[in-house]
């Protein structure tokens, strides 16, 4: 072996160093990374820019200082009540949907003809809120078959009021939100290794104990995500609140307030402020739910390595 002089050694070390391209590739940066660009542009154009535009717009009110819109919102009950009204619709309907989805999905997971039933259960997702609203108006209205039947069999003397109030909107949110909640829940439930349930049963756990000790803890993080996603959808309820509810009263949700500001008072700045407040209200709930999710085990729901 020959000895290398200092400069030759340095040159050799430099030559031995992997090329920059390789170093970048090892960190996950290579030509393929460029494929992410369209998505980034898309997000900037459709999310970041409108958000920042709206934020700036909301801080430039027609009259008053830069916080005037926000101050107005939180000083007028007509406006700030919409948050509570929207929550009062979105939280219970999301919760009800999850409470229905879990038992249904627990049953469906055992069925061999899953696909047919799943298709039927998911069908409402294709209908759209307006069609659901029209359907419910017909079925649940004072002259709908539900009230006719109830009157006919003498259960009630006069038709029950189920539309143009809180319950109409609530029901339509449940109907339109169920497929989404159910599909997510089903995929979380089927993701739990069946042998875990079998192991629990050989250890003496009956169906109830298996649900509480095995399924629910493993399902909780998934249900939290499901809750967040469904909640965000229902929080922005608009068509059914107008068509099936009392848009001037109990179902005057926050999106109606934003709509009125924008297209009835032509106060885009105020509308933007309302949209911002709406976003932060959603964010608050989502953050709370995700924080609670952190209390649960979140690893894979298979049987460890297997």
């Amino acid at each position: 072996m020959t000895t290398l002089s200092g400069s030759a050694l340095q040159a050799k070390v430099l030559a031995d160093r992997p090329p920059l391209r390789l170093l970048l590739a090892q960190r996950g940066l290579d030509g393929v990374t460029l494929l992410v660009l369209p998505a980034v542009l898309f997000i900037i154009a459709l999310f970041v820019y409108p958000f920042l535009y709206g934020l700036v717009l909301s801080l430039e009110p027609k009259v008053g200082d830069w916080l005037a819109n926000y101050r107005r919102f939180f000083s007028e009950p007509f406006l700030y009540d919409t948050i509570a009204k929207t929550m009062w619709l979105a939280l219970p309907s999301t919760l009800v949907n999850i409470l229905i989805s879990v038992p249904v999905a627990m049953r469906v997971r055992l069925m061999r003809r899953q696909r047919l039933l799943t298709t039927i259960l998911v069908l409402p997702i294709t209908l759209g809120t307006v069609l659901i609203a029209e359907g419910l108006l017909n079925y649940l209205g004072p002259q709908g078959w539900l009230n006719r039947t109830l009157v006919l069999i003498g259960l009630v003397s006069s038709p029950v009021r189920l539309v143009h109030n809180y319950w109409g909107v609530f029901l339509s949110l449940v109907v339109s939100g169920f497929p989404f909640t159910f599909l997510l829940t089903l995929s979380y439930i089927t993701g739990i290794d069946a042998s875990l349930e079998q192991a629990a049963s050989t250890l003496g756990a009956n169906a109830r104990a298996r649900f509480w000790h095995i399924f629910l803890p493993l399902l909780a993080p998934g249900l939290a995500i499901t809750f967040c996603l469904s909640f965000v959808q229902t929080f922005s309820v608009f068509p059914s609140a107008v068509l099936l509810g009392a848009p001037a009263g109990v179902t005057r949700v926050i999106s109606i307030a934003a709509y009125q500001a924008a297209y009835e008072q032509y106060d885009y700045s105020m509308a933007s402020a309302i949209a911002m407040i709406m976003g932060f209200a959603q964010l608050l709930v989502v953050v709370l739910v995700l924080a609670a999710r952190g209390l649960f085990y979140r690893g894979p729901a298979g049987s460890a390595k297997g």
């Binding site: 079998q198 050989t202 003496g204 460890a304």
Partner: peptide, 15 residues
């Protein structure tokens, strides 16, 4: 039945 069973994939409760 109260029989103990050891599964091929162990089926330990991950949580």
């Amino acid at each position: 039945r109260g029989f103990g069973m050891v599964f091929q994939n162990y089926a330990l409760f991950p949580h």
